[in-house]
């Protein structure tokens, strides 16, 4: 594929897209892990929600 004289700008655009999407995915994945871990720690300490305590 010949990108012509402005190849750097085209590659740069796609690289920016990849970087931003990767950043979003990383943020969501790290956040997910962190919240899961905190939830588990709290549950291990015996703190539960009302709906779960009733069962």
């Amino acid at each position: 594929m010949n990108l012509g004289p402005h190849a750097a700008f085209i590659v740069g655009s796609y690289a920016a897209a990849i970087a931003i999407v990767a950043g979003l995915i990383a943020w969501i994945a790290i956040d997910h892990r962190a919240q899961k871990r905190r939830l588990e720690t709290l549950e291990a300490r015996g703190v539960t929600r009302r709906s779960e305590r009733a069962s």
Partner: peptide
Amino acid sequence: NEILRRRVRTL
């Protein structure tokens, strides 16, 4: 994630 964050906050 946001729902989980709110659960953590409530707990």
